[in-house]
Amino acid sequence: MTEPLLAVEDLRVAYPGRGFRSPDTEILHGVSLDITAGETVGLVGESGSGKTTLGRALLGLAPVTGGRIKFKGEDITHADKAARRRLTRDIQVVFQDPYTSMNPNLTIEQTLTEPLRANGTSKRDALDKVAAMLDAVHLPTDSLGRYPNEFSGGQRQRIAVARALTLDPSLIVCDEPVSALDLSNQRRVLDLFIEIQERTGVAYLFVSHDLAVIRHLSHRVAVLYQGDIVEWGGCDQVTACPEHPYTQRLLMAAPVPHPIKQARHRADRQRVLAAQREAELQSGA
């Protein structure tokens, strides 16, 4: 196999404890995964599993205490400020909350040109590029002079995607980008992510708590549980017939949106839970 775009090896992240001499809180206890160019790796987990922290660690926004992150063969685990700023051309981000991820005081044009200008693009080139990006996310070009509060959640998330795309990155970290959106918008934004990937070949690390969303978008999936990856493999295998008991519970827990199928699903879930309890008792005995 060719060298992956991004490789995470035994990564540990810990936040310093609050107050004098209180112990650090370790969020990630050594996780490993890799992302190939042009692929989507889904990262699924519940609150407190560390999934957002992993995304932030790749962006240099979380304190890494162990392990390595390699991007295009280069170790970026503890990249200094200058290296980090160079990396912004390669690794970009779309955050969860479309309402706080844009400065309400800046116009869409100011928000979108910011990364280009910070990386030394001329004003005119930046404007051309930004117009092309708005087109790519299917927003009218007259959006440029408006402010974020004039857009709906779904539209804002499109703008956030456009901002991530302006520097032509090869990897975008997507941190629950659709969980704050309504059902109909959610679908449209997900399809936009797929469309852009197929056109540009960008890779995604797609973080979500929703197995259905992950399944819709991912090529490979990692399941994170309390700071450890408990299952990691092809999307169909992990999201349809998982091996790890936690992934099984996760899969069975999400209700199926149809009354008859859900009744069957619920019965399955009770059976799986009973079987797991049984197995636990036996291993304990």
């Binding site: 240099g60 926004l61 700023r85 991820s101 844009m102 400065n103 910011e114 990364p115 910070a118």
Partner: peptide
């Protein structure tokens, strides 16, 4: 949006 500005370089 401050995090976004940082990841924008």
């Amino acid at each position: 949006y401050v995090d976004a500005a940082r990841t924008s370089g």
